[in-house]
Design a protein around this nucleic acid. Structure first.
Lengths: 143, 143
DNA sequence: GTGTATAGTTACCTAAAGTAACAGTTAACC
DNA sequence: GGTTAACTGTTACTTTAGGTAACTATACAC
């Protein structure tokens, strides 16, 4: 068990780098991608929903959303509740989502290449358990 | 396989947060811990060695080492080659390493609690393979 | 309808890393 | 053996991403 953090971190940095390189072409980064992903999956979304899903403070999400608006990937739609800002993907956003989704999935396959079915199954299970262990230990992570 | 990055990232943030909370008591962060860990394991080390091991630029390591010197955890020892700065842990550094090592190992156990032997074995194997896949794909990661 | 809670924003700060440029030292090599 | 090239570490500046505190506008409670 010792060395888990070490292994995990050693993988983390280059993984994010590769993801960001992949997304750079679209002027995106992984943190922006997270928002696109959420909105694509959930449809109409508010900033607080995104913020609490990813456990990131509201100002961070405000910034991410602003950049996505500038990139014309996300648009605001009128809401009955004038406090909240409801957003959705633009057509362009949906197209970019599709493109990135495919590339990211391909990268996922490349990165997991050589892993057995069993290893992959176990790694997903383990990540899930880890996530739950952390939730219970602290008010952290996941929706 | 799809969703691997998502799961991985969802675990990453709270994990680092917990690690940093654990280390905060010693005025450390995980990035500083990495240097302590390296020097503890390798003994006399130069900044370039650390830099290339973690694939982090030299200025970052300079900064980390300076902070560790301020904290009196690391000291410079005279080197025949006057270009390079050879460092080692101070006695205090070695003691702090020991304390942190134990706490970190404990946290590793907590976080992996509920995972089967098999899952743990596989997750280590998988992380290893991933690392290698990334090295081959790009000039990234690991020593 | 007055007070409280909520959504989003702004301004400011922090952590960590990257790039470029440079000084000092060593090695190369002709 | 003296000049050039390469290497180690540092400084200064920039970038990315997030956090906190304070504020505005709106909605809800009662």
């Amino acid at each position: 068990m010792e060395g888990f953090f070490r292994s995990f971190m050693q993988v983390y940095r280059p993984m994010v780098t590769q993801l960001n390189e992949l997304l750079a072409e679209y002027h995106l980064s992984y943190s922006l991608w997270q928002v696109i992903f959420y909105v694509q999956r959930e449809g109409h979304s508010t900033l607080v929903e995104i913020s609490s899903h990813y456990h990131v403070e509201k100002p961070s999400i405000t910034r991410r959303v602003h950049r996505l608006e500038e990139l014309n990937l996300i648009q605001v739609i009128p809401s009955e509740n004038r406090r909240e800002k409801v957003i959705q993907l633009t057509d362009h956003g949906a197209a970019i989502y599709q493109e990135c989704r495919e590339k990211i999935t391909k990268l996922e396959h490349q990165i997991l290449e050589g892993c057995t079915e069993q290893e992959i199954k176990n790694i997903f299970q383990a990540l899930n358990k880890i996530q739950n262990n952390m939730i219970s230990k602290e008010g952290n992570v996941r929706e």
